[in-house]
Design a protein around this nucleic acid. Structure first.
Lengths: 115, 115
DNA sequence: TGTCCATATAAGTATATCGTTATATGATTA
DNA sequence: TAATCATATAACGATATACTTATATGGACA
């Protein structure tokens, strides 16, 4: 029988491992203040669309983010209902705002809006 | 308003990556309440001595832990002076105590003490 | 001084991770 | 319905990671 506290360590370690990638960590910080769609992330990170899609899948697999289709696009947002969200929010609050990434997108006319 | 002591995304990501390993995360949690030497970790994690040594080196490389020789042994402790220690402490406080690992060591007579 | 013991490093291997390009999927819309 | 667009998946390669075993190092102390 496994010790339940060891499982907590285990789960926390895999959560931290997921957040321990600069692309995913920035994604999470960004999503804390803005919903974003895949193509926006592609523009922000200057990375291929599949690479972005794979990062988002990892975040979604453990339900750190949610997706919602709006018109042509699928928007991702932080799942504030996640059991570990308070813990995650704590981590994200230690990071500098990444809003300039979105501002730059807007400046280039690449920001998607669905109003 | 965001916390003023904002951490660099890149540096935070590599810190989280380091902590995102169950062995190292447990080590850090343990070190928060007990100094431990390498051979104690070997007994606790049931892992080879070089494996333990390599994990500790990673933690020491970014100065999360300090080492101090006491007699034959080298004891490791948490570096509370680390710039990011408050952040790290926050993470560790989210974890269940791992003191039973040390208690079990004592029960087996494997706990090293230097008095 | 020489031996012993704890720890560190070296070298090698298996697996994981993160990117790529090519292709599939599936909703939207013309 | 067919074309289009955004996104997902597949397949693959390069590099990183986390172990292993073998060996080196270096302080403690007989």
């Amino acid at each position: 029988m496994e010790d339940t506290s060891a499982m907590d360590i285990q789960r926390t370690a895999s959560l931290l491992k997921l957040l321990g990638d600069p692309t995913r960590l920035t994604m999470m910080k960004l999503l804390k203040s803005h919903e974003c769609c895949v193509c926006e992330f592609v523009a922000i990170f200057n990375m291929s669309q599949p690479a972005i899609s794979q990062h988002l899948r990892k975040l979604r697999d453990i339900e750190l983010v949610r997706e919602e289709r709006k018109g042509q696009w699928i928007f991702f947002s932080i799942n504030e209902e996640h059991e570990d969200y308070p813990f995650i929010r704590n981590i994200l609050e230690h990071l500098p705002l990444q809003d300039d990434l979105v501002t730059n997108l807007e400046a280039k006319g690449l920001r998607i809006s669905c109003e």
